[in-house]
Design a binder for these strands. Structure first.
Lengths: 128, 128, 128, 128
DNA sequence: GTGGTCTAGACCACG
DNA sequence: GTGGTCTAGACCACT
């Protein structure tokens, strides 16, 4: 369900937060659906339960999941909010990149061409 | 010369590496021009000389500067290489963002519109 | 009869205790009137009978209800005591808030204004 | 500096968060002043450093403190924001209490009298 | 020496 | 069985 990159400098719990946010925003994890329990997911990913716990806590604080004591953790019922959260983040990143490109003297046309090029490869089912 | 953000989660030395790479790529620091000595820069930024040393080491490893023993540190003679290095990184980041946006169902047109919008604000001298 | 908030961090049984105490103090549940049986209430709220059992135990310990073996659970005959219990708790909370406000330099006039403001909205039938 | 109540049902890290928020809001901890290090505070309170670490993380996310890697943790430079944060919380609590009192048939005059009474005792230097 | 992350294992409250 | 908190101790990056 989730692939971790242990060489990545980003902490594991943060990678999990990102992955689950992403799956929820894309509707792959449906609203109110139950996530694997803390212990089970720890087994699946062969990491410590505390690390999963931390990831779930962060997700709860971001209101991406909610937690029912003794029951489990569930995707928030309001997926559209999650989606717009992620979209905002993407646009913020895009702005930073644009600023870097501008400072370097790269014209906006090149960026736009590249975007079309990338989208072309995505449609053909590469990567993803 | 360099503005640091001590509250940023990114390490100081990395911020310095980025800033100098940027200035070199944009030609503001000219090829073969001398950088301040480790001690002097440490004084200017009021930080530990070890941190500057580490930044310079990283820059040398990336071949953005070269070091002459007993003389000092100098910007690489091949600025065009630095520039293309940074450009590559920007395009790599752009690809990642495009992929995220695509996965989220955001169309490429929105991204392109936003880029034009951002470039518009840059031209008016905001930020930078 | 009772609305539960499963996402609330407070345990379910505690919410039930509070709700029943409240209804009894306000006289909506009359003295010596019978409460639904553990099993029936569990069905109505679709929760585990153990949870209801625990709530009833707590209520009995607080002398808000009494239990007759083989008969059922009943609201205490002394409702005025329940009412004064709740009133005491409210005043205790009010004292804590006043202390916090005082320590923060908030004057008592602001608090009193706010109380009038809140009561105004209650009268218009909002919330409750 | 901080008194913990181990019998309290609220987690220790949360008590610490509250105490430090309070001290900062009241200006007792000044802007940009350094907090005890994670390890030192753990020693002082005889609890585990991880618990302190968790409290500091929460405080950082609330922007009440900021953290400099390798340097320490410091009170936010914008204390007025902290103060208004706490004031909002107090008014929210006051609203809940008012609602409870209203439902119970307690008139607003009693609450206001009590507030004056409490403030009277505070001025004489009790408790605090 | 500082903060930050992670592991291992324990205990409690809840359902 | 579930999540939540806490302890103990380790390791790493940064200054």
């Amino acid at each position: 369900m989730i692939a971790l990159d242990f060489r990545d400098s980003r902490p594991i719990y943060e990678q999990i937060v990102e992955k689950i946010s992403d799956l929820a925003a894309r509707g792959i994890l449906e609203a109110n659906s139950q996530l694997p329990s803390v212990r089970q997911m720890a087994l699946e990913l062969s990491i410590n339960p505390n690390t999963i716990q931390r990831a779930y806590s962060e997700l709860e604080k971001k209101e991406i999941i909610y937690s029912l004591k003794g029951k489990g953790n569930f995707i928030s019922s309001d997926i559209s909010r999650i989606k717009s959260q992620r979209q905002e983040k993407i646009l913020k990143d895009l702005r930073n990149i644009s600023l870097d490109a501008y400072a370097l003297g790269v014209c906006s046309e090149l960026l736009k061409e590249k975007i079309d090029e990338y989208y072309g490869t995505f449609n053909k089912g590469e990567t993803l």
